[in-house]
């Protein structure tokens, strides 16, 4: 049965009417028209569909829409503030840390969650944190460099 589900999406309140067991990634991409969260595997393995749920990265393909009732969701579309890109976004551009770009939203949001807990990561910590995000183009080297660099810019997680 469709129910009314409320949450915050990219700092705006939304209410949708849907069966609570609908797939969250599908709802974000179709009902709510977003393009940032991507479908990569549908099984929680690749990280393309990553979003921030109450500031923590989660894999939206593994969630039901009722799970986000009352929560705050940020997708890649909501990361820039007033037109100013987030330091991670800037660092990905500056380091050319992407090729086809399909994994990029998931990479940036996973890194975002990681840096919020580990503001001054070592290279090894960054690699470990990103381990379960897949990139077929092989942008890994630059992604690691971009995240390390963004961490420095953010100087201990001020910009979030």
């Amino acid at each position: 049965m469709p129910e009314s589900i409320r949450f915050t999406l990219n700092a705006k309140p939304v209410t949708i009417t849907a069966e609570g067991d609908r797939n969250l990634l599908s709802v974000l991409r179709t009902d709510l028209g977003l393009t940032g969260p991507k479908f990569g595997c549908g099984e929680g393995i690749c990280g393309s569909c990553t979003i921030l749920l109450n500031n923590e990265p989660v894999r939206s393909c593994q969630m039901k829409v009722k799970d986000v009732e009352g929560a705050s969701i940020v997708t890649i579309e909501g990361l820039a503030k007033d037109g100013a890109l987030h330091p991670l976004q800037n660092a990905f551009i500056a380091h050319d840390a992407l090729q086809c770009g399909y994994c990029t939203p998931g990479m940036i949001l996973t890194a975002h969650g990681f840096l919020s807990h580990t503001p001054n990561p070592t290279r090894e910590e960054t690699i470990a944190a990103m381990e379960d995000n897949l990139c077929r183009c092989g942008a890994h080297k630059r992604i690691v460099e971009a995240i390390q660099d963004a961490a420095k810019t953010m100087k201990g997680g001020q910009a979030s």
């Binding site: 977003l34 393009t35 579309e77 551009i93 992407l98 770009g101 990029t104 939203p105």
Partner: peptide, 11 residues
């Protein structure tokens, strides 16, 4: 730099 990078990091 990749010309399309900005669009790709913002979704």
């Amino acid at each position: 730099l990749h010309q399309d990078a900005r669009d790709k990091v913002t979704g």
